[in-house]
Design a binder for these strands. Structure first.
Length: 272
DNA sequence: AATCGTTCCTGATAGC
DNA sequence: TGCTATCAGGAACGAT
């Protein structure tokens, strides 16, 4: 599932590969994958335009075109966005296709149809983006900021890390991985974390995200980068999808539990 | 305001 | 073998 490191990898790939290429049109194969307008609006609006810049906010990819128009993409569970050369086979779950004048194309595919592309003139005014918490790799994110945002919260820390209004970009993989690195149990009430633990958690979040970006993301399911290739951070996971296996830090056995409909992984020996 | 359950979707897998 | 039931999960939404 694409989280911050995966979306960031795609953002960097697309900035390098498709920035400046002029479009001739677009095709919508699944109407539900498009918001903010119909298929004919998309084709008309992108014709003659090109992508000017690619911005990431949390797990959103904002594709800025020239003359102010933007496409806001959320990949959700199984979304993939990739640049293809003429003759490349179209992905089975292709939903929206952008055609460039040079014959190449940008394809949004999405097996489970949870993801979508929204056409908008004001991407930063979208409610879900406006409500979003701090960027964990941004300048404004510090241990103090994290402490402040968790101070009054009584609920368990794990679901709070998944709440995009608390902190942007973490999903099930990196929330579990960060908690393991920080030595904190997912079930711990947020307001029970002492200052030193918040500090550890802050460092763990920043480190795991940076390492995952360096490894081009985790391909546990359908995630692919902007060239359609897999990332390799999944081989470095310490808890996610490792239930029954040995903890790489203490040798304990990794546990999995379903909690509010989300798989949660942890080491009962070195997470307290 | 915070928190919880439900919903969307479909390929993979388990069970019979 | 082939069928059906269950599961995975981000986030919007409604209920409490």
């Amino acid at each position: 599932m694409p989280e911050l490191p995966e979306v960031e990898t795609v953002r960097r790939d697309l900035a390098r590969q498709v920035r400046g290429r002029s479009m001739s049109g677009a095709e919508v194969l699944n109407p539900g994958s498009l918001k903010g307008g119909g298929p004919e609006d998309l084709a008309r609006l992108v014709k003659g335009r090109s992508f000017a810049s690619f911005v990431r906010r949390g797990k959103y990819l904002i594709m800025m075109m020239d003359r102010g128009l933007a496409l806001v993409v959320h990949l959700k569970m199984t979304g993939v966005i990739q640049h293809q050369s003429p003759g490349d086979p179209l992905p089975k779950a292709a939903r929206v296709i952008f055609y460039f004048r040079d014959g190449s194309r940008l394809v949004f595919s999405d097996q489970r149809k949870f993801g979508a592309i929204e056409i908008t003139w004001n991407p930063h005014k979208l409610a879900s983006i406006r409500k979003m918490g701090p960027e964990p790799l941004g300048k404004g994110f510090s241990a103090d900021v994290l402490r402040e945002r968790l101070a009054w919260r009584k609920g368990p820390i794990k679901p709070l890390l998944l709440d995009q209004t608390v902190i942007a970009g973490l999903g099930n993989i990196y929330a579990s991985e960060a908690l393991h690195r920080a030595g904190i149990l997912p079930q711990r009430p947020a307001n029970s974390l002492v200052s030193a633990e918040i500090g550890k958690l802050h460092r763990a979040i920043v480190r795991v995200l940076k390492e995952a970006i360096a490894a081009r993301g985790s391909s546990v399911d359908t995630y692919r980068d902007g060239q359609g290739k897999k990332g390799w951070f999944q081989v470095k996971h310490r808890v996610y999808d490792r239930q029954g296996r040995k903890c790489r830090r203490c040798g304990g056995t990794i546990v999995r539990d379903t909690y509010r409909g989300r798989g949660t992984y942890w080491c009962p020996r070195c997470q307290r």
